[in-house]
Design a protein around this nucleic acid. Structure first.
Lengths: 366, 366
DNA sequence: CTGAAAGCGCTTACAG
DNA sequence: CTGAAAGCGCTTACAG
């Protein structure tokens, strides 16, 4: 320990401990200059350590790291961001009416961001508004995020994806169809999940089966419908056109669609809804008609949102690992931004959850 | 229009339009220097315009603003942040198991942030972990947010609030009790909302009334309980100790509590649950016993979360304007950060929503 | 009401 | 493997 250097750079700061000749900065207040001075190296070298450059002698690195730890130094994200013209946050660009979905995606992303230098910034958008691409563009130019995560429906906008590609900003799309490179996709096999729902209903002996799907501009709408239809066909059943309706992925839409479907003669004995919200709408329609679930009408949803387990009887549904997908999306984005490769598309397989809306409660797996 | 100045600062950039002798920077790419040069003023003055300083001649200001608009210049938040050591985002520090609540608060905040320079960054925390205050402290020191918004339960941590006060970072707490200055509080009158629930049940003629409350460490737990109790007392009724149970604000906790309460003799004929999640648990417990709602057991929840309208029969509940509260919190934070004063606490009054779980469906307001 | 200059805390060619 | 110097795009005392 030598007395304080006589550099004119030394700034008087509140002394924390005693006996230190360096006037160490208060916790969390140190800058790269403090570290460099104490380590007797240039800040260029400290910067190398911060950024994991291999071009630092082991001993030098260790010494610097010790001082960093001692000072509880952590580099200022704004300064780093300015210097490299790239900020330390990830943007979540979402246009999803489903709170449950949004929160789970967020949680998954946040899980993956723990221990990294990155923060999550929210950027809601209305993809049905033609101005949304320009808004995202402005957002990116201003804030220079490391990258963007796009869950459905924003993931399905090719205009948006093209713009991002032009701006050379990384992104990861979460969707049920692999419409982009593996390093830009997290895929859920909605087709397979819906097929499992179809097989389940067929195995239960249902013949007169209806389907309520989401909006036509969602890819998942088609994946789920065609997966379901394929499974029925496999079982020798078919999905009649008059038993298919659009529920817009909303509770109200599902209820209205079910009102119409359940009024038909003969009444369908089972309904597969493209998500749990619409399935809850089917419950409502069935209640209004005094129908018993599942005796008069069996119901299967999709998502395994909390509501599925809270209605009576508990709802059979297809579970989408939303949080895990958010986690995977963030990991992939981080890896891609570091230059890592992803030869294969990360894929998630939904699983069917059987509850009391398809199997009478005493025998159901609740 | 004169030919390009011969300053050595001029950088060659892609030309956008034609005919401009200035080689204008591409859209969204201009810097304060470009603006200053074109306006023939110092960047100091441009900075004054950006920051709404009154010390600029009207004509100068107008000229600069025209150029800013023309160039679609918008100042780099990272550079501004670095210079003033304060970033352009607001942190949402939350510890809330309820997705619905979280998303609505977010939406409200985001509504208020549209058109401002600020972004919303998520900072989940586990307030039951003693390390959470230190984590938030680190977050603040590193990222220097303009301020923080704290919904329950993080709003209820005095340790956290004290730390924020010491760090001199602005914050707004959202809670049912005014335990901080008006400029730091958004209050919801849960007491009044719960009282309305109590009056409603009393008016319906219920005598044997039970209550399921949240965790003891939430202030809202006490507000809701005491508001409810006060209303019953007013009606000449009392809340018997053996008819009060803790449901932990969760669906499962509510169900378990209801299992116990409904097993008692005489069975309660009404239950007020401290939130909709627990009320949904009461539905489940009632279903298992084959009880009719509301004939055998009336149920009232709190929040008016989506689930309230999706169960059968639709649930009577107390509506909390969560999104509006998030909006108000963000507005208040922005105003406070600008030095604005707030003499009175911003207060929200919940309203009771009567549905089929207290009034048989044919007469209910659905 | 306006400007020249220093500074915020980093990164980055460029040298060595 | 390491460093001196310039630069990222702003703000801010300080002068005038």
């Amino acid at each position: 320990m030598k007395p304080a250097a006589t550099s004119d750079q030394i700034v008087v700061r509140p002394v924390l401990g005693e006996g230190s000749p360096y006037n160490p900065p208060a916790r969390g207040t140190a800058t790269i200059n403090d570290v460099a001075r104490l380590a007797k190296v240039s800040k260029r070298t400290v910067s190398r350590v911060i950024n994991d450059s291999p071009l630092v002698k082991l001993k030098t690195r260790a010494a610097i790291q010790a001082i960093i730890a001692d000072l509880q130094f952590s580099p200022d994200p704004q300064a780093r961001g300015l210097a490299r013209s790239k900020s330390f946050f990830i943007g979540l660009v979402y246009d999803n009416p489903n709170s449950q979905y949004v929160v789970n995606i967020q949680r998954g992303i946040l899980d993956a961001l723990v221990g990294t230098d990155f923060q999550l910034v929210l950027h809601p958008c209305d993809c049905s508004d033609s101005g949304h691409v320009l808004q995202v563009e402005t957002f990116i130019q201003q804030h220079k995020p490391l990258g963007l995560i796009l869950p459905p429906a924003s993931s399905e906008s090719e205009a948006l994806a093209d713009t991002l590609k032009n701006l050379e900003v990384d992104y990861v799309r979460i969707a049920s169809v692999a419409f982009d490179e593996p390093s830009r996709m997290i895929r859920s096999m909605d087709f397979d999940g819906a097929a499992a729902a179809g097989r389940h209903l067929a195995a239960r002996g249902h013949k007169n089966i209806a389907h309520i799907h989401g909006p036509a501009n969602y890819r998942s709408t088609h994946e789920r419908r065609s997966g379901f239809e394929a499974a029925l066909k496999e079982a020798g059943l078919s999905l009649e056109a008059h038993l298919v309706a659009d529920g817009g992925y909303t509770f109200e839409g599902g209820e209205a669609a079910a009102d119409r479907l359940l009024a038909q003669e003969p009444r369908p004995d089972a309904v597969f809804a493209g998500n749990d919200e619409m399935a809850a709408g089917v419950y409502m329609a069935a209640r209004k008609l005094g129908l018993r679930i599942p005796e008069d009408i069996a119901i299967v949803g999709f998502d395994d949102a909390p509501i599925a387990a809270r209605v009576w009887p508990p709802m059979s549904t297809v579970r989408l690992p939303i949080r895990d997908m958010g986690h995977a999306a963030a990991k992939l984005l981080l890896r891609t931004a570091e230059g890592g490769a992803s030869p294969e598309t990360t894929t998630f397989y939904p699983e069917i959850i059987v509850r009391g809306s398809t199997v009478p409660i005493q025998k159901a797996v609740v």
